[in-house]
Write a protein that binds this DNA or RNA. Structure first.
Lengths: 123, 123
DNA sequence: TGCGGTACTTACCTTTTCGTAAGGAGGGTC
DNA sequence: GACCCTCCTTACGAAAAGGTAAGTACCGCA
Protein backbone atom coordinates (compact mmCIF):
# COMPACT_ATOMS: atom_id res chain seq x y z
CA UNK A 1 0.00 0.00 0.00
CA UNK A 2 0.91 3.57 -0.39
CA UNK A 3 0.34 3.76 3.32
CA UNK A 4 3.87 3.31 4.49
CA UNK A 5 5.94 4.67 1.63
CA UNK A 6 5.35 8.36 1.26
CA UNK A 7 2.59 10.29 3.11
CA UNK A 8 5.52 12.00 4.37
CA UNK A 9 6.64 15.51 4.70
CA UNK A 10 5.98 16.42 1.13
CA UNK A 11 8.48 18.49 -0.75
CA UNK A 12 5.92 20.12 -2.99
CA UNK A 13 2.23 19.98 -3.84
CA UNK A 14 2.72 17.74 -6.84
CA UNK A 15 4.25 15.26 -4.48
CA UNK A 16 1.16 15.30 -2.29
CA UNK A 17 -1.18 15.21 -5.26
CA UNK A 18 0.55 12.31 -6.96
CA UNK A 19 0.63 10.38 -3.72
CA UNK A 20 -3.13 10.06 -3.40
CA UNK A 21 -3.62 8.93 -7.01
CA UNK A 22 -0.73 6.50 -7.15
CA UNK A 23 -2.19 3.05 -7.38
CA UNK A 24 -3.04 0.99 -10.37
CA UNK A 25 -6.75 1.79 -10.47
CA UNK A 26 -7.20 5.03 -8.57
CA UNK A 27 -7.31 7.23 -11.63
CA UNK A 28 -9.96 5.02 -13.18
CA UNK A 29 -11.99 4.84 -9.99
CA UNK A 30 -11.95 8.60 -9.82
CA UNK A 31 -13.10 8.75 -13.41
CA UNK A 32 -15.90 6.20 -12.97
CA UNK A 33 -17.15 7.88 -9.84
CA UNK A 34 -17.05 11.30 -11.44
CA UNK A 35 -18.87 10.12 -14.55
CA UNK A 36 -21.64 8.25 -12.73
CA UNK A 37 -21.87 10.26 -9.52
CA UNK A 38 -22.83 7.17 -7.48
CA UNK A 39 -21.75 3.60 -7.99
CA UNK A 40 -22.13 0.35 -6.14
CA UNK A 41 -19.25 -2.03 -5.57
CA UNK A 42 -20.26 -4.48 -8.27
CA UNK A 43 -20.90 -1.65 -10.72
CA UNK A 44 -17.42 -0.28 -10.20
CA UNK A 45 -16.03 -3.76 -10.62
CA UNK A 46 -17.74 -4.16 -13.95
CA UNK A 47 -16.62 -0.69 -15.00
CA UNK A 48 -12.95 -1.45 -14.36
CA UNK A 49 -12.13 -4.43 -16.54
CA UNK A 50 -9.47 -6.56 -14.92
CA UNK A 51 -9.62 -5.24 -11.39
CA UNK A 52 -9.71 -7.80 -8.60
CA UNK A 53 -12.10 -7.46 -5.69
CA UNK A 54 -9.18 -7.16 -3.32
CA UNK A 55 -7.59 -4.25 -5.14
CA UNK A 56 -10.92 -2.50 -5.53
CA UNK A 57 -11.77 -2.61 -1.83
CA UNK A 58 -8.20 -1.74 -0.94
CA UNK A 59 -8.12 1.30 -3.18
CA UNK A 60 -11.59 2.40 -2.13
CA UNK A 61 -10.57 2.18 1.55
CA UNK A 62 -7.45 4.24 0.91
CA UNK A 63 -9.35 6.83 -1.06
CA UNK A 64 -11.92 6.97 1.70
CA UNK A 65 -9.17 7.56 4.26
CA UNK A 66 -7.76 10.25 2.00
CA UNK A 67 -11.14 11.97 1.99
CA UNK A 68 -11.72 11.47 -1.72
CA UNK A 69 -14.66 9.07 -1.74
CA UNK A 70 -17.64 8.60 0.50
CA UNK A 71 -18.91 5.17 1.42
CA UNK A 72 -22.52 4.70 2.39
CA UNK A 73 -23.72 1.35 3.67
CA UNK A 74 -27.39 0.50 3.63
CA UNK A 75 -28.30 -2.10 6.20
CA UNK A 76 -30.48 -4.00 3.82
CA UNK A 77 -31.06 -7.66 3.26
CA UNK A 78 -28.79 -7.97 0.24
CA UNK A 79 -26.09 -5.61 1.45
CA UNK A 80 -25.88 -2.41 -0.54
CA UNK A 81 -22.92 -0.08 -0.49
CA UNK A 82 -22.76 3.09 -2.52
CA UNK A 83 -19.61 5.00 -3.35
CA UNK A 84 -19.42 8.60 -4.46
CA UNK A 85 -16.88 11.39 -4.66
CA UNK A 86 -16.54 13.90 -1.88
CA UNK A 87 -15.98 17.56 -2.56
CA UNK A 88 -12.22 16.99 -2.38
CA UNK A 89 -12.54 14.10 -4.78
CA UNK A 90 -14.34 16.25 -7.29
CA UNK A 91 -11.80 19.05 -7.07
CA UNK A 92 -9.00 16.50 -7.43
CA UNK A 93 -10.66 15.22 -10.53
CA UNK A 94 -10.84 18.72 -11.93
CA UNK A 95 -7.19 19.22 -11.07
CA UNK A 96 -6.40 16.09 -13.06
CA UNK A 97 -8.17 17.50 -16.11
CA UNK A 98 -5.09 19.10 -17.69
CA UNK A 99 -3.06 15.97 -17.05
CA UNK A 100 -5.75 13.96 -18.79
CA UNK A 101 -5.64 16.28 -21.77
CA UNK A 102 -1.86 15.99 -21.86
CA UNK A 103 -2.22 12.21 -21.76
CA UNK A 104 -4.62 12.23 -24.68
CA UNK A 105 -2.11 14.30 -26.66
CA UNK A 106 0.58 11.84 -25.74
CA UNK A 107 -1.49 8.89 -26.92
CA UNK A 108 -2.09 10.73 -30.19
CA UNK A 109 1.63 11.46 -30.57
CA UNK A 110 2.44 7.81 -30.15
CA UNK A 111 -0.08 7.00 -32.80
CA UNK A 112 -1.93 4.40 -30.80
CA UNK A 113 -5.14 4.17 -32.71
CA UNK A 114 -6.07 1.08 -30.74
CA UNK A 115 -7.20 3.29 -27.89
CA UNK A 116 -10.56 4.93 -28.07
CA UNK A 117 -9.41 8.50 -27.75
CA UNK A 118 -12.89 9.93 -28.12
CA UNK A 119 -13.93 8.09 -24.97
CA UNK A 120 -10.90 9.53 -23.22
CA UNK A 121 -12.01 13.15 -23.45
CA UNK A 122 -12.64 12.98 -19.76
CA UNK A 123 -13.19 16.01 -17.51
CA UNK B 1 10.09 -0.09 -13.47
CA UNK B 2 6.95 1.19 -14.99
CA UNK B 3 8.23 -0.34 -18.19
CA UNK B 4 6.43 -3.62 -18.08
CA UNK B 5 3.33 -2.90 -16.05
CA UNK B 6 1.17 -0.44 -17.89
CA UNK B 7 2.24 1.44 -21.07
CA UNK B 8 -0.65 -0.36 -22.31
CA UNK B 9 -3.73 0.42 -24.18
CA UNK B 10 -4.75 3.27 -21.95
CA UNK B 11 -8.35 3.61 -20.94
CA UNK B 12 -8.22 7.38 -20.64
CA UNK B 13 -5.80 10.26 -20.78
CA UNK B 14 -5.33 10.43 -17.04
CA UNK B 15 -4.14 6.87 -17.23
CA UNK B 16 -1.50 7.83 -19.77
CA UNK B 17 -0.53 10.97 -17.90
CA UNK B 18 -0.17 9.26 -14.56
CA UNK B 19 1.86 6.50 -16.11
CA UNK B 20 4.77 8.74 -17.11
CA UNK B 21 4.99 10.43 -13.71
CA UNK B 22 4.61 7.30 -11.59
CA UNK B 23 7.91 6.74 -9.91
CA UNK B 24 9.12 7.90 -6.57
CA UNK B 25 11.12 10.88 -7.81
CA UNK B 26 9.72 11.79 -11.21
CA UNK B 27 7.54 14.61 -9.97
CA UNK B 28 10.48 16.14 -8.14
CA UNK B 29 12.82 15.71 -11.10
CA UNK B 30 10.28 17.50 -13.27
CA UNK B 31 10.08 20.26 -10.73
CA UNK B 32 13.85 20.67 -10.36
CA UNK B 33 14.36 20.68 -14.09
CA UNK B 34 11.57 23.17 -14.63
CA UNK B 35 12.84 25.48 -11.91
CA UNK B 36 16.49 25.47 -13.02
CA UNK B 37 16.09 24.90 -16.76
CA UNK B 38 19.37 22.95 -16.95
CA UNK B 39 20.88 20.69 -14.32
CA UNK B 40 23.82 18.34 -14.16
CA UNK B 41 23.58 14.87 -12.62
CA UNK B 42 25.22 15.80 -9.35
CA UNK B 43 23.14 18.97 -9.09
CA UNK B 44 19.92 16.98 -9.42
CA UNK B 45 21.22 14.54 -6.87
CA UNK B 46 21.83 17.30 -4.37
CA UNK B 47 18.43 18.83 -5.16
CA UNK B 48 16.59 15.58 -4.40
CA UNK B 49 17.46 14.71 -0.82
CA UNK B 50 17.51 10.98 -0.33
CA UNK B 51 17.61 9.82 -3.93
CA UNK B 52 20.12 7.13 -4.80
CA UNK B 53 22.27 7.36 -7.88
CA UNK B 54 20.65 4.23 -9.26
CA UNK B 55 17.12 5.58 -9.01
CA UNK B 56 18.15 8.93 -10.42
CA UNK B 57 19.74 7.47 -13.54
CA UNK B 58 16.89 4.99 -13.90
CA UNK B 59 14.22 7.66 -13.72
CA UNK B 60 16.14 10.00 -15.98
CA UNK B 61 16.52 7.24 -18.58
CA UNK B 62 12.80 6.48 -18.46
CA UNK B 63 11.86 10.12 -18.73
CA UNK B 64 14.24 10.46 -21.64
CA UNK B 65 12.57 7.51 -23.38
CA UNK B 66 9.21 9.12 -22.68
CA UNK B 67 10.40 12.27 -24.40
CA UNK B 68 10.21 14.40 -21.27
CA UNK B 69 13.86 15.21 -20.66
CA UNK B 70 16.82 15.82 -22.90
CA UNK B 71 20.25 14.49 -22.08
CA UNK B 72 23.31 16.20 -23.47
CA UNK B 73 26.72 14.65 -22.97
CA UNK B 74 29.83 16.76 -23.33
CA UNK B 75 32.88 14.68 -24.19
CA UNK B 76 35.09 16.50 -21.75
CA UNK B 77 37.82 15.37 -19.47
CA UNK B 78 35.70 15.30 -16.33
CA UNK B 79 32.51 13.98 -17.89
CA UNK B 80 29.72 16.52 -18.04
CA UNK B 81 26.09 15.63 -18.65
CA UNK B 82 23.33 18.20 -18.72
CA UNK B 83 19.65 17.45 -18.33
CA UNK B 84 16.79 19.72 -19.36
CA UNK B 85 13.09 19.46 -20.11
CA UNK B 86 11.86 18.99 -23.63
CA UNK B 87 8.81 20.80 -24.93
CA UNK B 88 6.65 17.85 -23.87
CA UNK B 89 8.23 17.90 -20.44
CA UNK B 90 7.40 21.55 -20.01
CA UNK B 91 3.78 21.09 -21.10
CA UNK B 92 3.49 18.11 -18.77
CA UNK B 93 4.74 20.27 -15.96
CA UNK B 94 2.14 22.89 -16.76
CA UNK B 95 -0.52 20.19 -16.84
CA UNK B 96 0.57 19.15 -13.37
CA UNK B 97 0.10 22.70 -12.09
CA UNK B 98 -3.51 22.26 -10.91
CA UNK B 99 -2.62 18.97 -9.26
CA UNK B 100 0.20 20.72 -7.45
CA UNK B 101 -2.18 23.43 -6.26
CA UNK B 102 -4.62 20.75 -5.09
CA UNK B 103 -1.79 19.07 -3.25
CA UNK B 104 -0.83 22.27 -1.49
CA UNK B 105 -4.45 22.67 -0.37
CA UNK B 106 -4.41 19.12 0.87
CA UNK B 107 -1.26 19.69 2.88
CA UNK B 108 -2.88 22.78 4.39
CA UNK B 109 -6.02 20.83 5.24
CA UNK B 110 -4.00 18.22 7.05
CA UNK B 111 -2.34 20.94 9.02
CA UNK B 112 1.18 19.83 8.30
CA UNK B 113 3.09 22.95 9.06
CA UNK B 114 6.35 21.01 8.96
CA UNK B 115 6.33 21.27 5.18
CA UNK B 116 7.52 24.44 3.56
CA UNK B 117 4.36 25.29 1.69
CA UNK B 118 5.73 28.56 0.41
CA UNK B 119 8.41 26.68 -1.46
CA UNK B 120 5.73 24.41 -2.87
CA UNK B 121 3.92 27.09 -4.86
CA UNK B 122 5.44 25.51 -7.89
CA UNK B 123 4.15 26.04 -11.43
C1' DT C 1 49.80 7.75 -3.56
C1' DG C 2 45.69 8.23 -1.82
C1' DC C 3 41.51 10.91 -1.81
C1' DG C 4 37.71 13.39 -3.93
C1' DG C 5 34.86 14.54 -7.86
C1' DT C 6 32.71 13.40 -12.64
C1' DA C 7 28.62 10.02 -14.07
C1' DC C 8 27.31 6.19 -14.08
C1' DT C 9 26.65 0.39 -13.94
C1' DT C 10 26.03 -3.90 -11.65
C1' DA C 11 24.71 -7.21 -8.24
C1' DC C 12 22.08 -8.31 -4.41
C1' DC C 13 18.48 -7.77 -1.21
C1' DT C 14 14.23 -5.83 0.98
C1' DT C 15 9.91 -3.59 0.64
C1' DT C 16 5.79 -2.64 -1.65
C1' DT C 17 2.34 -3.73 -4.79
C1' DC C 18 -0.60 -6.58 -7.25
C1' DG C 19 -2.91 -11.03 -8.44
C1' DT C 20 -5.20 -15.59 -7.34
C1' DA C 21 -7.96 -18.19 -4.84
C1' DA C 22 -10.66 -19.21 -1.18
C1' DG C 23 -14.00 -18.29 2.57
C1' DG C 24 -18.09 -16.15 4.82
C1' DA C 25 -22.71 -14.39 6.29
C1' DG C 26 -27.16 -13.86 4.89
C1' DG C 27 -30.72 -14.13 1.72
C1' DG C 28 -33.17 -15.32 -2.99
C1' DT C 29 -33.79 -18.66 -6.77
C1' DC C 30 -34.34 -23.23 -9.14
C1' DG D 1 -30.62 -28.30 -0.93
C1' DA D 2 -27.38 -26.56 -4.08
C1' DC D 3 -26.19 -22.54 -6.20
C1' DC D 4 -26.28 -17.57 -7.01
C1' DC D 5 -26.15 -12.89 -5.34
C1' DT D 6 -24.35 -9.06 -2.16
C1' DC D 7 -19.58 -7.02 -0.40
C1' DC D 8 -16.10 -7.92 1.22
C1' DT D 9 -11.70 -10.42 4.16
C1' DT D 10 -7.79 -13.40 4.49
C1' DA D 11 -3.82 -16.10 3.10
C1' DC D 12 -0.37 -17.05 -0.06
C1' DG D 13 2.85 -15.78 -3.61
C1' DA D 14 4.81 -13.52 -7.58
C1' DA D 15 6.33 -9.42 -9.65
C1' DA D 16 7.80 -4.78 -9.54
C1' DA D 17 9.87 -1.00 -7.38
C1' DG D 18 13.25 0.73 -4.62
C1' DG D 19 17.57 0.74 -1.45
C1' DT D 20 22.64 -0.42 -0.48
C1' DA D 21 26.98 -1.00 -1.71
C1' DA D 22 30.49 -1.81 -4.59
C1' DG D 23 32.99 -1.27 -9.00
C1' DT D 24 34.44 1.50 -13.34
C1' DA D 25 37.39 4.95 -15.59
C1' DC D 26 39.60 9.08 -15.78
C1' DC D 27 41.33 13.34 -13.78
C1' DG D 28 42.94 17.05 -10.37
C1' DC D 29 44.75 18.07 -5.97
C1' DA D 30 47.93 17.61 -2.14
Amino acid sequence: MARGSRRGPYICGIDAGLDVVSGKWKGLILWELDAHRVRRFAELRRGLPGVSEKMLTQHLREMEQDGLVEREVYAEVPPRVEYSLTEHGRTLNQALGPLGAWGVDRIRREGSEKVDVAEASHS
